[in-house]
Write a protein that binds this DNA or RNA. Structure first.
Lengths: 108, 108
DNA sequence: AATATTTATTCTACAAAATAGAAAAAATAC
DNA sequence: GTATTTTTTCTATTTTGTAGAATAAATATT
């Protein structure tokens, strides 16, 4: 397969979109909103850890915020490898989808 | 997760692209070419079977051809559910990638 | 100051998907 | 009839994804 699994790609995209607000709970909320699918807690943290181990993401501990509650946030940012992986994913998508009309069902 | 796994999505796209030439070996060649990744034989046939079971694809046995060799080809075509799944996948991709510049690495 | 509530991550057993490639099948070529 | 080619089938193993309880750490409430 390609270098990124599906969940990994979604998470890298979310990290990129969320800039300096990219931590577990926010990433999960964002992806549930965009995909319309319920994603379990593990569905975020498990691949996040994997992405750090693979060095597509770098993690750093957040400072306490004025809001109530919670363990200290663990923020993530893309590494250069992470950026390259996303660029590659985009290239593949564009090739696959390019020039295709809305797919339609040809019965027969 | 979403309704399609990564490999399933790639295969549906390949089936759609290949029209009446969508059978295992061709699908594999096409996806290796587009993704630049080596995909094992199982990496095609295992998800193909799953897609038929899930009714995103319909399979039909091919007639013998003038070319030499091979078991009779098993061709695939999208069902209406398969088309819908692809349309949904496209919608999600467009939302995720829309308006994003080429991702770049912000060190810091 | 206890207790409740909220926000957040960690952990881990289980399920689903992907990988790898040998084996089998079926055809033509020599 | 033996070799070669093209194709699918099969299946054990590894990798990924899922589910959600447990834990942690902060503020709010009484």
């Amino acid at each position: 397969m390609s270098i990124l699994s599906k969940q990994e790609e979604l998470i890298l995209l979310a990290v990129w979109r969320l800039h300096d607000e990219a931590y577990g709970v926010k990433i999960r909320k964002y992806l549930i909103e965009v995909t319309g699918c319920d994603i379990s807690i593990g569905g975020i943290y498990v691949p996040l850890d994997r992405l750090v181990r693979k060095e597509f993401l770098q993690a750093y501990q957040g400072e306490p915020t004025p809001e109530r509650g919670g363990m200290s946030k663990r923020y993530y940012k893309l590494t250069s490898e992470g950026v390259e992986a996303l660029q590659e994913a985009r290239r593949v998508h564009e090739t696959l989808w390019e020039g295709l009309p809305q797919p339609s069902f040809s019965s027969g």
